[in-house]
Design a protein around this nucleic acid. Structure first.
Lengths: 269, 269
DNA sequence: CGAAGTCTTGACAAGACTCAAACTGGGTGG
DNA sequence: CCACCCAGTTTGAGTCTTGTCAAGACTTCG
């Protein structure tokens, strides 16, 4: 039950390696699933660095990741790159609604990957016959928006250390929810390099390197050559949720009116 | 025709001050519009700083801004604040799909504002009878996600100067598209303070102040006490799109602050 | 008038970036 | 087997951008 909401299992066809795909059928109904399966124009496979589409293309399909990781990113005129989203099995991307526009980002594979192609037009007409599918799509896109906002907060207001730690923890969480690792796994293989992490967090890879070293030395976590290991989950949470001050507090720090002002409004929780 | 896509006119009721609301009716059909209008449970009015909902609330409504500006923001445990989105007339926010979760951000008015309340449940059932409405909703939410990604790139990969200039230009553009100012307006009144801008861009208000001064001295634009004026659109575009590199100053020397004070203080006195 | 919220400025500190160089491990081809 | 290359990683030194702290000035409003 929870799984449905967590892994956004929009659709996976028979070739999808993920178990429990029946959940999806149950959610949108067997008939809709059948039609959706036939609406799929094809499945495509990729090896690392293969592009799905590129900045400036006109894209008329939505995609669902069946296996592997992909990334969405934008490159500015002068070469600066920002990764906007990592994609894992079950994720939806591309042109979901029919608002025809050139796309402003690129999509490419990070690992061996396969995705399912759903032409937007077919998806639109299908949605009209199967409102439940429409619900799922809307939820998925709303979730995407929500995650992007989260990223804004992460990049805008957190220190480099917090950003890196948070991203890595987030990746592990997502893998757990998708059953890509055991639910109690304390580590995983992530197809990320220091450059990738930097481009996702608005940092240089060099600084990412220093941050990783510091996290390692703090015995919080280590990320070496794609292998993530959480050493101290408690201190990691403390680092991320500020329940504990790590090295940041200087001499007698007193949160006074300045803070009270911003926090003055009810902040539930 | 173009307008439909640009201002995301999801819905406005008779009390909405915006002209051309007929466009919206034409888009989703008169019957759907009628039903949507009756689905609206109420309209609410706000004065600056009034909350619509707060972090931690359970929200069961979607909202459409009828007039005024609002902001969505998140406050971290230690008081750091990140504004995730500014809302202007026509914008949709709140719980559009029925994925029940506590909300992780707050919404509050920046100006006098009125919004239309659409209970999510009614919206969901209405969508099933009027697929075109579903299309519009999906497009709107996808657009939101897209704009959030844009924000990620802006904050992650652009300098403080670029960020500020971009935000101000973006606000003016949005106002133009919504007919809140003349299409050829070179300035506008924005309900933003330097603190607000900082919180939206991941900067401190003090640094925003420095950046604004520098933009003013560069004769690109001025933003004084809520009044935006674009002085040199060409150089602004150059600054933002890198067709030219803004030689901030040849050597890394502090810009001379004594001069150009006249340009700096055109107001008041 | 005072109070609160803004804006402005300066001096300084810290965080993050740049440049440059060296190291690693895995592949490749001779 | 080795030399070589390559992408990724590591480290250091120096610089620049941005944040912090502190204080003063200006506006608005009751």
């Amino acid at each position: 039950m929870t799984l449905m909401h967590t892994i956004s299992p929009l659709f996976w066809c028979s070739s999808c390696p993920i178990r429990d795909h029946s959940i999806c059928g149950a959610m949108i109904g067997p008939q809709a699933l059948g039609e959706l399966a036939s609406a799929r124009s094809s499945c495509r496979s990729f090896t690392p660095c293969d592009p799905v589409y590129a900045q400036g293309d006109r894209v008329g399909d939505a995609f669902v990741v069946l296996s592997g990781w992909l990334q969405l990113y934008q490159v500015l005129e002068d070469g600066r790159r920002q990764i906007q989203r990592f994609l894992m099995p079950g994720d939806l991307f591309g042109a979901v609604s029919a608002s025809q526009q050139d796309i402003d980002h690129s999509a490419e594979a990070l690992t061996q990957a396969s995705i399912c192609v759903l032409p937007t037009t077919r998806l639109t007409s299908l949605r009209q016959r199967h409102p439940t599918l429409g619900n799922r799509l809307l939820e998925a896109v709303e979730q995407t928006a929500h995650e992007a906002m989260d990223m804004v907060t992460n990049i805008g207001r957190r220190s480099a250390t917090e950003r890196v730690a948070r991203l890595l923890q987030h990746c592990l969480d997502e893998m757990r929810r998708r059953d890509l690792v055991a639910p109690d796994a304390r580590g995983a293989q992530l197809p990320l390099t220091q450059v990738t992490i930097g481009d996702a967090l608005g940092l240089t890879s060099i600084h990412v390197n220093r941050v990783l070293r510091s996290l390692r030395e703090m015995q919080v976590l280590s990320f070496v050559r794609g292998t993530l290991l959480i050493h101290d989950e408690v201190r990691l949470d403390a680092l991320l949720h500020g329940t504990e001050q790590h090295d940041r507090q200087g001499a007698g720090f007193v949160p006074d009116k300045r803070m009270l002002r911003t926090v003055a409004a009810p902040v539930g929780r």
